[in-house]
C-alpha cells in the first residue's frame, strides 16, 4: 500500500492495468449475460423474469462494495494523509452511484412481475435508496469543498460515517421482516440457495462488472492526477 501511495509508481501500474481490467471485464460481462439470457434455465417460480438477476445482483454488490472502498480510502486519507487515497475515494463515488442506481432500477423492474409492485418502503429497498442519496451527497459535498480549496477532509469524514449504512443494507432482510427475500448467497459461509446452473453465470457477471468498475476507477484516478499536474503547471506559469 505504501509503495502504491506514490503517484508516479501508481501511474506506472495503473496505465497498463486499465485496459486489461476494462476489456477483461467487458468480455466476462458479455459472456455471462449471453449465458444468463439464453442458456441458463428459467426459475421454477418466477419464470423468465429471474434473468434480471445477472445485472441486479452484481449492481447491488458493486453499489455496496463501492462505498466500502470509498470508506477505506477515506480512512487512509484521514489517518495517513495519503493524497492518492483522497483521489481514489472521489474516483469511486461516481461509478458507485451509477451501480447503486442500476440496482434500484433493475430491482424495481423485477419487483413488478414478481412481487406485484415497482416500489415498497421496506427496509432493504429504503436502505438501498439511502445509499444512492449518500453517493449523490458525497459527490456534491466533495465538489463544494474542493471549490473552496479544501483537501476533501469533510467529504472523507462523510464517507466514513456513511459506511454505517452498508451493514444496515446487508442485515436489513434478516433483522426486519421485509418484502425483499432473505440472503441467497453468503461468501462468509460459502453457501448459496441459487442453483449451480444460475449461480455460475451470476458470479462470472459479478466478476466482469467488478473488473469494469476497477477500470473506471483507475481511469478516473489517472484523469484526476493529470488534472492536478496541469493545474500545478498553470500556477507556476501565471
Amino acid at each position: 500500500m505504501q509503495t502504491l501511495a506514490n503517484p508516479a509508481r501508481f501511474l506506472k501500474i495503473a496505465r497498463p492495468l486499465t485496459p486489461v481490467l476494462g476489456w477483461g471485464g467487458a468480455l466476462l460481462i458479455v459472456g455471462a449475460l449471453a449465458v444468463g439470457l439464453f442458456v441458463a434455465p428459467r426459475d421454477y417460480l418466477q419464470g423468465e423474469s429471474v434473468r434480471i438477476i445477472y445485472v441486479h445482483v452484481p449492481a447491488a454488490w458493486l453499489g455496496m462494495g463501492g462505498w466500502t472502498g470509498l470508506a477505506i480510502a477515506s480512512f487512509m486519507q484521514l489517518v495517513w494523509r495519503h493524497p492518492l487515497a483522497a483521489i481514489a475515494a472521489r474516483a469511486i463515488a461516481v461509478p458507485g452511484a451509477v451501480f447503486a442506481a442500476l440496482c434500484l432500477v433493475t430491482g424495481s423492474l423485477w419487483g413488478k412481475p414478481t412481487w406485484g409492485t415497482y416500489w415498497q418502503w421496506d427496509a432493504r429497498l429504503t436502505s438501498m435508496l439511502i445509499l444512492l442519496f449518500l453517493y449523490i451527497a458525497y459527490i456534491a459535498l466533495d465538489d463544494a469543498e474542493r471549490e473552496r480549496g479544501g483537501e476533501g477532509r469533510i467529504a472523507a469524514i462523510f464517507g466514513l460515517v456513511g459506511a454505517i449504512n452498508i451493514p444496515i443494507i446487508h442485515y436489513s432482510v434478516e433483522y426486519w421482516n421485509t418484502l425483499h427475500q432473505g440472503q441467497s448467497i453468503s461468501f462468509l459461509r460459502a453457501s448459496s440457495t441459487v442453483d449451480a446452473s444460475m449461480l455460475w453465470p451470476l458470479l462470472v457477471s459479478a466478476a466482469g462488472f467488478s473488473l469494469l468498475f476497477g477500470a473506471i476507477v483507475l481511469m478516473r484516478m489517472r484523469a484526476a492526477l493529470a488534472r492536478q499536474k496541469v493545474e500545478a503547471r498553470l500556477r507556476r506559469y501565471s
Binding site: 434455465p41 426459475d43 421454477y44 417460480l45 418466477q46 440472503q183 440457495t193
Partner: peptide
C-alpha cells in the same frame, strides 16, 4: 392490496419437481 413475497431459492423447474417442494 396483495403482494407476493418469494423466498431466497432460485432453481430450474425440473429440479423443483424432483424436490417436490411445490
Amino acid at each position: 392490496e396483495i403482494l407476493a413475497k418469494h423466498d431466497e431459492n432460485y432453481m430450474p423447474p425440473q429440479l423443483d419437481v424432483k424436490k417436490g417442494e411445490h
